[in-house]
Amino acid sequence: MRDSRHGRLVLVLLLAISFALITVDIRGGRNSPIANVRDWASAVFGPAERGVSAAVDPVGRAVNAVKDAGSHEGDKKRLQDENAKLRQQVDNIELDRNRAAELDKLLKVSTAGQYKVKPARVVAIGPAQGFSWTVTIDAGAGDGIKPDMTVINGDGLVGRVTQVGPMTSTVLLATDPGFSVGSRLAGSMEIGITTGRGDRPMSLKLLNGQAQVKKGDRLVSFGSQGGKPFVAGVPVGEVAEVRNKPGELTRTVEVRSYVRFSSLDTVGVVVEPPRTDPRDTLLPVTAEPTPPTAPAAPPAPPAAAEPPPATTEPPAGAQATRPPAAGDRANNANASGDGRRKPSSGGATPPAGRD
C-alpha cells in the first residue's frame, strides 16, 4: 500500500512538471529557456525514433492491409452489383425501344384499317388447352377480350382468341395445323382458304382450281360475318411457291406469312371491326422493279486529221502555167483554120476592088 501511494505521488509530480515545462515551452516559443534541452533531446533520441519507426512501419502496414482486405472485398462486390444493374438497364432500354417500334407499327395498321384494338404482350408460349401452336397474352375479360377475336401485329395476321380468362387469354397462332382463314388474292380477287402447317409454310386452296396464281401474289383476310373470328383486310402472307401435282388437277400453293412467330412480343386484339373493308390498303408497299439500263455506247474514235492539199511549185525560172482566159480562147479560134481572120459580129466586111 505504501509503495503504491509513493508511486502515485511520483507520477503526479512528474505529470505536473511535464505540464509546467510544456506551458513554459509553448509560451516562450523559440526563446524558450528549455529550447536547448529540446534540441539536445531531439539530437539524441531522433535516430532511435527513426529506427524504431522503420522497424514498426512495415508491420503496421501489413496489419492495416489485413484489416482493409474485408472492406476491399465489399467494394468489389458493390461495384459488381452496380455493373450488373447498369447492364440490366441497358438491356431494358433496348427492349423498350423494340417494343415501342412494334407498338408504333401496330397503331399504324390499326389506324389505316380502322380497327379498334387492345394492345397486349405475349407472356407465355407453348401448348395450352390441347393446342400445339398457342401463346398467352396479358389481356383478358377485364380488358374487353372475348373468344373468336382477331389478333394482329404490325406485320399482319397473328391468330385468333380461343380461351379468355380474367387477366390473360390464349391465342391460336396462324401456323397451327388446325387454323384456317378465308383469304383473297390482291388484284385478282380470287378467294381461297389458307391453312397453317406448323413450322412449314401455310398452304392455300383456291375455290377456283383454274385461277391464275404465281409466286409473289399477296393475300389478305377475306373477313367473317360480324368480324368474328376474322376481320377483313388483314395481311396474311405472300405466295412462296406453286407446284403442280402430276396426274392431279389441284395445285399446291405455299404461302409465307408476314408475321415472324418465333419473336412475337407486342400484339393487338381487334375488339371492334372496321365499318368498311380496307381491302388491300394494309399490304406492305413493294418497290417497283427498276428496268435494266442499257450499257452506254463506247465513245467514237477521234476523226483522223486530213492532210493538207499538195501544192506543186514550178521550178525556178519556169513560167507558171495558168488556164487560158475567155479572150485568149477567142483569139486562138480566129487564128486557127486557113489563117484568115473572121469578121467580127460588129459589122460587114467591104467587098474587094471597090473604092
Rank of each mutant, 00 (worst) to 15 (best):
P201D: 12
I193W: 03
L106S: 06
D143R: 00
E190L: 07
F179E: 07
T111Y: 04
I193E: 09
P127N: 13
G130K: 00
R197A: 07
P177E: 05
S203C: 03
N153V: 10
G196I: 04
W133A: 15
L157A: 10
T134R: 09
V171C: 12
S169F: 00
L185R: 00
P166Q: 12
M167S: 09
I137A: 09
R97D: 12
G187Q: 05
A124H: 11
V181F: 02
G154E: 09
G126K: 04
G113T: 01
Q114A: 09
R184Y: 01
L172A: 02
R121G: 14
T175E: 07
R160T: 11
L206Y: 03
A141M: 04
I191S: 06
L106Q: 03
G178K: 11
I191M: 09
I137G: 12
V158S: 07
D96W: 01
S132Q: 12
A124S: 14
S110W: 06
A124D: 14
K108G: 11
T195V: 12
S183P: 07
G156E: 13
K205H: 06
A186H: 08
M167G: 06
A174H: 04
M149N: 12
P119H: 08
D96M: 11
D143G: 00
R121T: 15
K116A: 12
V171D: 12
G126I: 02
V151N: 07
R160L: 05
V122M: 07
L107Y: 01
K105M: 10
P127R: 14
L103R: 15
Q114R: 07
P201Q: 05
K205P: 01
G154K: 05
G159E: 06
M167K: 09
N98M: 08
A141I: 01
R184D: 04
V109P: 01
I152C: 07
L107A: 02
D96L: 11
V151H: 05
G196P: 01
K146C: 00
Q163V: 15
G140Y: 02
V122C: 11
S203M: 08
V171H: 07
I152T: 07
I152W: 09
I152Q: 06
L107G: 00
E190H: 08
W133M: 15
P166A: 13
P177H: 02
V151W: 02
R97H: 10
T170L: 14
G187Y: 03
P147Y: 04
P119L: 11
P166Y: 01
V122L: 14
V123Y: 08
D143P: 00
K108S: 11
G198F: 00
N98E: 14
V109R: 03
A101V: 11
D176F: 01
D148G: 03
V123W: 05
S183Y: 02
